[in-house]
Design a protein around this nucleic acid. Structure first.
Lengths: 159, 159
DNA sequence: GTTGATATGTTATAAAGTAACATGTAGCAA
DNA sequence: TTGCTACATGTTACTTTATAACATATCAAC
């Protein structure tokens, strides 16, 4: 799995295939992929960056798809719970999952200059952590790595 | 480095030695370890758990050591910036560093049932991530791992 | 003792998130 | 069809978390 986010890609395709994958998954698991939920995911896929809940809400408002915070928080909760989106705790923001459908431990590379976020995978890290923690008796159910640094573009800009 | 937090230890000693280490570090680096900053760290060391900024503020208030949010946020900012405390993003809470003075990439084991937090180390994870991301050109400056799961005590309680 | 840098005090407000209850809707069962 | 159930959405009001901005204090160096 490559880190996604700091390179060119066919963006229209990635929006379409993302939605398609979730359509299929929801059909399979009898989850209700309702208009608001679908639109919120579509917004995240389109923007292709971490967005605050209120940024998303502004867009929904303009489209009469719900105008109060709980609407967007509930949609985001659904998306995150089922792994279609991730929350970037460090930014209080949300981003569409870049590895839709694959079971993974996400690792986020967050640019401190421009707030761009790329999603890599940290599966090996999980194992490493697992060793370190097995002594303590703690059982890991879910883990996320958030790394702060500079993306290629901002490195150039800083020179 | 062992994960600290889910086992017995001499707590008075760990408060004293923590403060002493920071005293020394600040003297060495001409940082001002002022009464508020010192007291906030002491509170975190005493409580030995992740605390919200406003929980800490309540204690400071009772002691006339500052009564408004910026006071505690500034102290926490100082402590975090210099590695004496960590922010647990997932909980919007702060915890004293368990590996004071040692350069490390913290990994937090957060119990989803009781919110207890233990600090392990993820240094190997940094290397793993470094490989995955070197292709993308992203330069990691700082990384944190937050793992959610069940601590030994809550596992027992759940049976 | 004036200056500059850093820390604290204080007011006010922004930003992020949720509790609680009302309303709508879709599927199933009698 | 009706009514029941489960789930989703609409809405109000509020809590929690965090910060901007400006005033004041402290302290060391000149």
């Amino acid at each position: 799995m490559d880190p996604v986010g700091f390179k060119q890609h066919d963006h229209k395709t990635c929006i379409r295939s993302g939605l398609k994958a979730v359509d299929a998954y929801c059909a399979d698991h009898s989850l209700q992929f309702t208009p608001v939920r679908r639109r919120v995911l579509e917004i995240l896929l389109q923007q292709h960056r971490a967005m605050g809940a209120y940024d998303i809400l502004d867009i929904l408002r303009a489209e009469d798809l719900g105008s109060q915070p709980p609407v967007v928080y509930r949609a985001l909760d659904f998306l995150v719970r089922h792994g279609f989106a991730h929350k970037i705790e460090r930014l209080n923001a949300f981003i569409a999952c870049a590895h839709m459908g694959q079971d993974h431990t996400p690792a986020f590379l967050i640019c401190r200059a421009c707030d761009a976020v790329a999603e890599a995978d940290a599966d090996p890290a999980r194992k490493v952590l697992g060793q370190a923690t097995s002594e303590s008796g703690f059982v890991i159910e879910q883990a996320a790595v958030e790394a702060l640094g500079l993306c290629p573009a901002c490195q150039k800009a800083a020179q």
